[in-house]
Measured scan of single mutants.
Amino acid sequence: RPMNAFMVWARIHRPALAKANPAANNAEISVQLGLEWNKLSEEQKKPYYDEAQKIKE
């Protein structure tokens, strides 16, 4: 299954978030990633939607 825009973004940002929160488990990191993603504007998300579309094609 191809990655969606959030997954493209999260793949880039997960390592830094995990390093900054070494005690957090994957579920907690995923929740935090979701919160951070939701704070982004549509303009900030656009490159990730574009990349996800390329992956689908």
Rank of each mutant, 00 (worst) to 15 (best):
29 I>G: 01
36 E>W: 13
39 K>N: 07
32 Q>K: 12
55 I>N: 08
28 E>V: 05
33 L>R: 00
37 W>D: 00
2 P>T: 12
2 P>Q: 13
39 K>F: 04
9 W>E: 00
57 E>D: 12
29 I>K: 01
22 P>V: 03
42 E>D: 14
49 Y>H: 07
26 N>T: 11
41 S>C: 03
10 A>P: 00
42 E>S: 10
33 L>P: 01
41 S>G: 05
57 E>N: 11
23 A>H: 14
14 R>E: 06
44 Q>E: 13
44 Q>C: 05
56 K>L: 14
30 S>P: 01
29 I>M: 04
7 M>W: 15
6 F>G: 00
56 K>C: 13
11 R>E: 14
50 D>C: 07
27 A>E: 12
18 A>S: 11
16 A>Y: 12
8 V>E: 03
15 P>E: 12
49 Y>C: 04
44 Q>R: 05
8 V>K: 03
37 W>V: 00
44 Q>F: 05
26 N>R: 10
22 P>D: 02
19 K>L: 12
45 K>V: 03
15 P>Y: 13
15 P>F: 08
44 Q>I: 04
31 V>N: 07
20 A>C: 05
7 M>L: 12
23 A>E: 12
16 A>E: 09
52 A>V: 08
18 A>L: 13
18 A>Q: 13
12 I>S: 06
24 A>V: 04
29 I>W: 02
2 P>R: 12
52 A>P: 02
7 M>F: 12
37 W>Y: 02
41 S>D: 06
35 L>H: 08
2 P>K: 12
46 K>Y: 04
9 W>C: 02
28 E>F: 11
54 K>S: 07
3 M>P: 12
36 E>V: 10
15 P>N: 08
16 A>T: 09
49 Y>A: 07
46 K>M: 07
7 M>N: 07
52 A>T: 03
46 K>H: 05
23 A>G: 14
10 A>R: 03
17 L>Y: 13
7 M>Y: 12
36 E>H: 08
55 I>L: 13
47 P>D: 03
9 W>V: 00
9 W>M: 01
28 E>A: 09
56 K>S: 12
25 N>Y: 03
16 A>Q: 12
3 M>G: 06
51 E>K: 11
18 A>F: 07
24 A>H: 06
54 K>M: 09
55 I>V: 07
21 N>L: 08
30 S>C: 15
5 A>T: 01
51 E>N: 04
10 A>D: 05
27 A>I: 10
14 R>S: 05
30 S>T: 13
42 E>L: 14
16 A>F: 13
39 K>Y: 04
32 Q>T: 07
47 P>W: 09
9 W>R: 00
35 L>Y: 08
28 E>M: 13
35 L>G: 03
45 K>W: 02
2 P>C: 15
19 K>R: 11
1 R>K: 14
23 A>Q: 13
38 N>C: 11
36 E>G: 04
48 Y>G: 01
44 Q>K: 07
36 E>T: 10
42 E>H: 11
40 L>K: 02
11 R>A: 14
50 D>S: 07
11 R>K: 13
40 L>W: 02
38 N>F: 09
47 P>E: 05
8 V>Q: 03
43 E>N: 08
5 A>H: 01
31 V>T: 09
48 Y>C: 03
57 E>C: 09
2 P>G: 11
47 P>G: 03
44 Q>V: 05
49 Y>L: 05
33 L>V: 02
40 L>G: 00
1 R>I: 13
17 L>M: 11
43 E>M: 10
9 W>I: 01
25 N>F: 03
17 L>G: 01
56 K>Q: 14
5 A>K: 00
38 N>A: 14
3 M>L: 11
53 Q>F: 09
50 D>P: 02
34 G>V: 15
53 Q>R: 13
37 W>S: 00
39 K>L: 09
10 A>T: 04
13 H>M: 15
57 E>K: 06
7 M>K: 06
42 E>C: 14
29 I>Q: 02
33 L>C: 05
43 E>G: 08
3 M>V: 13
57 E>Y: 08
37 W>G: 00
27 A>Y: 14
36 E>D: 06
4 N>V: 09
20 A>R: 10
21 N>I: 04
56 K>Y: 13
35 L>V: 10
52 A>Y: 11
19 K>V: 07
6 F>H: 00
53 Q>P: 02
32 Q>R: 11
25 N>L: 05
15 P>G: 09
30 S>K: 10
53 Q>K: 13
51 E>M: 15
55 I>R: 06
49 Y>S: 04
15 P>I: 12
13 H>A: 08
28 E>K: 04
16 A>R: 14
40 L>T: 01
56 K>V: 09
41 S>F: 02
48 Y>N: 02
2 P>D: 14
44 Q>A: 11
37 W>M: 00
24 A>L: 15
22 P>N: 03
51 E>R: 11
4 N>L: 14
47 P>T: 06
36 E>L: 15
40 L>R: 01
27 A>V: 09
11 R>M: 13
15 P>T: 09
7 M>G: 05
22 P>H: 03
25 N>W: 03
10 A>V: 09
14 R>D: 01
28 E>Y: 09
23 A>K: 13
23 A>F: 14
37 W>C: 00
13 H>L: 04
11 R>Y: 12
41 S>W: 01
44 Q>W: 03
25 N>C: 05
27 A>L: 12
11 R>Q: 12
22 P>E: 03
48 Y>E: 00
55 I>Q: 10
9 W>D: 00
50 D>N: 08
31 V>K: 14
26 N>K: 12
57 E>I: 09
20 A>S: 08
44 Q>H: 07
22 P>Q: 04
33 L>Y: 01
41 S>K: 04
38 N>I: 09
23 A>M: 14
49 Y>E: 08
22 P>I: 04
39 K>A: 09
20 A>Q: 10
10 A>S: 09
20 A>T: 06
2 P>Y: 14
17 L>H: 03
38 N>M: 13
9 W>F: 15
27 A>S: 09
24 A>F: 14
12 I>V: 08
49 Y>I: 08
38 N>L: 12
24 A>C: 07
51 E>P: 02
13 H>V: 09
21 N>G: 02
3 M>F: 12
43 E>Q: 11
26 N>G: 10
